[in-house]
Simulated scan of single mutants.
Amino acid sequence: MIDIISVIAWIAADRVAVLGLGGLTVFGALLEVWNRFKQGEAGPATSSPCRIESVSDRERIHRLLQENEGLMKQSEIVDAVDWSKAKVSRLLSDLEENGEITKIAIGRENLISLPGHEPPAAIS
């Protein structure tokens, strides 16, 4: 004859196993969602690297300069954005090559201006 305690223990063990498997399944699904979310932040791999981001970065620099009467120190731009000094420097060099800004060296610092906003002493 089957003892009632062993039946209860068997049912309890069975439920614990089912709950454990269910918990692992939910955990695995959450990890998969997290990984897909993180990959979405990095963006899909394309042949042209982050063209959309570059445009918005350029626009952000232009807006910063417009908000500051077309003239800012490079260090102020670095402080205003959440980018490295190297990224800001590369972006400003690209903008200068395209004639979108002017970089004026003042000692060890650069003054960045929109065309037509250069200080009078820098034009001569």
Rank of each mutant, 00 (worst) to 15 (best):
M1G: 15
I2Y: 07
I4F: 10
I4W: 15
I5F: 08
V7Y: 14
V7I: 15
V7M: 14
I8R: 04
A9K: 13
A9E: 12
W10G: 05
W10E: 11
W10H: 07
I11T: 15
I11S: 12
D14N: 12
R15E: 01
R15K: 14
V16Y: 08
A17S: 10
V18Y: 05
V18G: 03
V18P: 00
V18W: 03
G20P: 04
L21H: 07
L21Y: 10
G22M: 00
G22E: 04
G22D: 00
G23P: 01
L24M: 06
L24P: 01
T25A: 01
T25L: 02
V26Q: 13
F27H: 04
F27W: 06
F27D: 06
F27E: 01
G28L: 03
G28W: 03
A29W: 11
L30A: 08
L30P: 08
E32C: 09
Q39S: 00
Q39D: 09
G40M: 09
G40I: 10
E41I: 02
E41P: 05
E41Y: 03
A42T: 04
A42S: 10
P44A: 10
A45G: 08
A45N: 12
T46V: 02
S47R: 14
S48K: 06
S48C: 08
P49C: 01
P49L: 02
P49E: 06
P49V: 00
I52Y: 15
E53Q: 10
S54P: 11
D57H: 15
R58G: 12
E59G: 13
R60E: 12
R60Q: 08
R60P: 06
R63Y: 15
L64F: 03
L64I: 07
L64R: 00
L65E: 09
Q66N: 13
E67S: 13
G70P: 14
M72I: 01
M72Y: 00
Q74I: 11
Q74P: 04
I77S: 08
V78S: 03
D79H: 11
D79T: 13
A80M: 05
A80K: 00
A80S: 06
V81Q: 02
D82H: 13
W83Y: 12
W83S: 05
W83H: 07
W83D: 07
S84L: 09
K85W: 10
A86E: 11
K87M: 12
K87D: 15
K87V: 05
V88D: 03
V88M: 05
S89E: 13
R90A: 09
L91A: 13
L91P: 06
L92A: 06
L92S: 01
D94R: 02
D94H: 14
L95S: 01
L95V: 02
L95N: 01
E96R: 02
E97V: 10
N98H: 10
G99L: 04
G99H: 04
I101E: 04
I101F: 02
I101W: 05
T102A: 10
T102P: 09
K103W: 01
I104A: 01
I104M: 07
A105M: 08
I106D: 06
R108H: 09
R108P: 03
E109Y: 11
N110C: 05
N110H: 08
L111M: 04
S113A: 11
S113Y: 06
S113H: 00
S113L: 00
L114R: 02
P115I: 05
H117G: 04
A122D: 00
